[in-house]
Design a protein around this nucleic acid. Structure first.
Lengths: 348, 348
DNA sequence: GACTACATAGAAAGCGCTTGCTGTGACTCC
DNA sequence: GGAGTCACAGCAAGCGCTTTCTATGTAGTC
């Protein structure tokens, strides 16, 4: 029923080997023969059997991309950039690669499961995006898996994720700590001394790094932190809303709220407004990431811009072997402080 | 070097056939044997070779998802929902499916190319999201491809895309026209008579349907449309910004701007503000889709909520054969008008 | 106790492709 | 003009798995 290589070969009056070579274009084939083959392919509407060729050639054109949540633009932007670099006519002839995007939902098990599935598919490369989970046991399992993948020839790239030493993975980490510090310093320079912090979920490198940056800044300026000023939540708007109300309840005298990311910051803004507070007159708000919508908030959001698209593109190129890995297999990508309307001096 | 089924079989002292059956769990295997096999699998750290098993079994566990732009939450949300339904422990034993997300960037060629690639992988199902391109030739090529896929046993589902008759595809279409009409009627009821419209790219079903809905409303209320009131652009913020300036230039007396989607509407808001106009006091603005950030705009955006996550989930279930297809292979999904702060009576 | 039925396990034939190696003419080169 | 070169094309051996069909041991049945 389905057309196979042999059918094409028969019709073009050549051997299957020749058809294969025409299709893969990595072996000399006379122009006239090639034409005849291509004609047969066209007439029969032949489509290569991917699994069969992957099996025979022991390679695959699948590239895995692990994300926490593809509906979140933070990951969507990276995924899109990675994608744009792995496919397309940039690679070798016929080198269209397919991106397998895996939504882990932040679950350790799913992360591992997807890696196994990708390993099963003999993926050509795997890119892991976003922060890692800080559980020692899970980390060990992940590292072992990554090493196995790398050993099997799969290129492993971490994008916005801390390095995984001795696994063979290339890391493009985000300088979350530095960005967090810069952001809070900006607030401190404006005169704030009572700053609330809405952190992400615990046990995540991104959460911890940003929070540490925040604390670095406080410490550097001799501000003693009140434990009531930090609330943990999820990386979404709703969490930001609730956390802000909680913060306000704990200490109504706060003059600034620093959020784990932009979505959380937007939720914080909504909560402040609903509480009758003006931004930035009564309370300043800052986010992190600089997602596209952040500039449209009113007032527009002060945040740290992470070059997600650039980092993703680079990760994609490295994954395809089209760009050299950074020295030492790791590069730190810095964020840029974007000062906008949501921050001002206290009671300004 | 790499561990194969045979290695496991040898270690467990059974035949390869038995190992395969243990792994696939669809054939009676004595508990003691199974245990022995599983132990060997574990000890050898064996990972099934996906391509080989796909070849032998003539099936694959890949599901394709075509999107215009995964960085756009409109698509991200649908992709995420589809994903959540195709994988996971919901399916048959061992039924982890991998989602292949393909970014077409709205290009007809890439759309077709990706479909071929998916066909090559013998994808179990394919879900196409978002509007279609209205080029007759392209549509014919797409339909032919979809039919071929469906004939080969791949389940094809269209999510937010118009039906493709006689291709065997199941369609969950969005009622863009109805939503567009409702939105504009809301504005008309508020008293607006001079409404600008920022449409999406031409030659797209989504663009046309929403615009037609808008015009339906105008016609129904006896409002004659001025050709200057419609500008075409892309589905992004920047396009909305520029189009709004153009609209204002053409006719400064407009009292409302209807945008093709929420991102465009946000751009429109920014342009209006930069032009010294207040929203909604001077000009009302409306969007479409109700993406998560729309409620955080200030004033929050009046828009039409499309149940993206619900539709995506349903599409995913249908693609997996876990939910019955709607009668006639097509269902229309309605949007819901969300009246918020960005619209009010003119000069109100 | 012989016979049928059942539950399991194995043998082996592919699945559709790639690729190393082996022709085989046509050319070149002294 | 015979040997050495090329440029192609074909043969055939897998790649690692699934699955049909067959074999075998064990129970159940009268």
């Amino acid at each position: 029923m389905t057309v196979t290589l042999a059918d094409v070969a028969a019709r073009a009056q050549v051997s299957p080997a020749t058809v294969s070579r025409v299709l893969n274009g990595n072996y000399p084939v006379a122009a006239s023969t090639r034409e005849r083959v291509l004609k047969a392919v066209d007439e029969l509407d032949y489509v290569l059997n991917g699994p069969a060729s992957a099996l025979a050639a022991a390679t695959s054109d699948l590239v895995g991309i692990l994300v926490n949540d593809i509906a979140d633009p933070f990951f969507g932007i990276m995924a899109s950039a990675i994608q744009s670099e792995i496919g397309g006519p940039g690679g070798r002839a016929g080198g269209e690669r397919l991106a397998v995007v895996c939504n882990t939902g932040g679950s350790p098990e799913r992360e591992l499961t997807y890696l196994t599935l990708l390993q099963r598919q003999r993926a050509a490369a795997v890119v892991l995006t976003g922060g890692a989970i800080e559980d020692a046991q899970h980390k060990a399992a992940m590292d072992a898996k990554l090493k196995k993948l790398a050993d099997a020839g799969t290129r492993v790239v971490l994008c916005g994720r801390p390095q995984a030493p001795d696994t063979g993975a290339i890391a493009l980490t985000f300088d979350n700590r530095g960005g967090g510090k810069e952001l809070t310093e900006h607030l401190i320079r404006l005169g704030h001394r009572r700053l609330g912090y809405i952190a992400g979920p615990e046990e995540r490198t991104t959460t911890r790094d940003r929070l540490e940056g925040h604390r670095d800044a406080l410490a550097a300026h001799g501000i003693e932190e009140d434990p009531r000023w930090t609330v943990h939540g999820r990386y979404d708007r709703r969490s930001g809303y609730e956390a802000t109300l909680e913060l306000l309840r704990r200490d109504p005298s706060l003059t600034a709220v620093v959020a784990a990311n932009d979505s959380v910051a937007l939720g914080a803004c909504a909560a402040l407004r609903d509480s009758g507070l003006r931004i930035p007159d009564d309370v300043s708000v800052a986010g992190f990431d600089d997602l596209p919508f952040s500039i449209d908030a009113v007032p527009s959001l002060t945040t740290v811009r992470l070059p997600l698209a650039e980092a993703g593109a680079r990760a994609g190129r490295i994954a395809m072997g089209r760009e050299e890995a950074p020295p030492g297999g790791i590069a730190s990508v810095r964020g840029e402080l974007m000062v906008r309307g949501s921050t001002a001096g206290p009671r300004g």
